[in-house]
Simulated scan of single mutants.
Amino acid sequence: MVLYLGIDAGGTASKARLVDANGLRLGAGKAGPANTRIGLDALHRSLLDACTQALKDGGVADSDYGSVRVGMGIAGINRMGMKQQIQALDFPFANVQLTSDSIIANLGAHMGGDGAILILGTGSVGLIKRGEDSLSIGGYGFPISDEGSGAALGLSAIRHALRTLDGRTRPTQLSQAVTKQFDHAIPNVIAWMDDAAPADYAAFAPLVMEYAEIGDEIALSIVRDAAQHIERFIETIFAKGASRCVLMGGLAPRIKPWLRARVVEKLSAPLGDALDGALILAGLPIGSLASGR
């Protein structure tokens, strides 16, 4: 029997879902970050780890891996030459289809149909799909892009915390909570920054949201700024002719209440998730995906 494995590889984690030809879920897996910026070897390990977990969870023997068709959506795969390098990696499967994490999110959100998404996770990116054509908005990589994302929230929190430590601004509960993680010492922050990845910055996003919800003035300014960027994303998506737009990603539910009502009213509910999109990419018929739910 042919099996289908979908992989959603993002900046914070990589997730896998295994289904049979009828769309019935058989197994799941989760591994570390799989953004291309972590390096090809680390990326390969994360992808294989997520795949192996899902296959073992589904009771698939090593000898049957050759019957598995895989679809992978990988953050950062559009960087120059990266797709070709990943295609050259060794995977023990019947077939591996590769694309970006935003493409699989769009496929899942609209079950292969036309529409737009705005992903708000570790990073941020908008994607409009019309037939075989797609148009990306933003998503150029942290720190030059990814406005309104978890990494952007974390970066702003770190910047504000440093300003409180050197006396340029008044401390708040948020800044104190951030600097506490570095023993309130600027050299510790700088040392951390040297090796910090986007996911490390995004780890501070829940703190920002928590303190914004209780009225911390720095947290409020960060979240309101992020909301403005997100609203501009959505306005641009519709200005470019999208028929519907879905908000996706781990940060989306938390920040949606901060958007203006007239913007939220334009949004649609997703028909599926990014792993559904990865399974569509792998070749699973959409009808089987719907019937397997």
Rank of each mutant, 00 (worst) to 15 (best):
S63R: 14
S63A: 15
R37F: 06
L89E: 04
E210Q: 14
S134T: 12
K129D: 03
R293F: 14
P171T: 02
L155G: 12
H160M: 03
P253Y: 10
I255C: 02
G76N: 08
M82I: 11
S291C: 04
E132W: 05
F204Y: 14
A50G: 07
A109F: 01
G123P: 10
V264P: 05
D225F: 10
D133C: 08
L165M: 10
A252E: 07
A197G: 03
M209L: 15
A227N: 08
G112R: 06
A226Q: 08
A116Y: 05
R37A: 07
G39H: 04
Q87D: 07
P187L: 03
R159F: 05
G241M: 13
M248E: 05
I104H: 01
R293L: 12
S102H: 00
A261I: 05
D20H: 03
M1D: 15
L135Q: 10
G66W: 06
A261H: 09
D225A: 13
A282Q: 12
A191R: 08
G6R: 07
Q228D: 15
P206R: 09
R254G: 03
A21N: 12
L279C: 08
P257Y: 04
L259S: 10
E235M: 00
G277F: 01
G283H: 12
G81T: 02
F238N: 01
G58F: 00
D64T: 07
A269T: 11
R254W: 11
L98R: 11
F93M: 10
Q173G: 15
R168G: 14
A75F: 11
P171V: 09
R293M: 10
V189T: 04
I103H: 04
Q228T: 12
R25Y: 04
P270N: 14
N95A: 12
A191D: 08
A28Y: 07
N78H: 13
Q228G: 11
L155K: 15
E213Y: 00
S243I: 02
A196K: 14
M1T: 09
D200I: 07
V246N: 04
K15D: 13
I104P: 03
H44A: 14
T122P: 11
L251E: 05
G215A: 07
H160G: 02
I255A: 12
D101H: 00
G32H: 02
N95D: 13
G241V: 08
D49F: 13
K83D: 09
A197P: 03
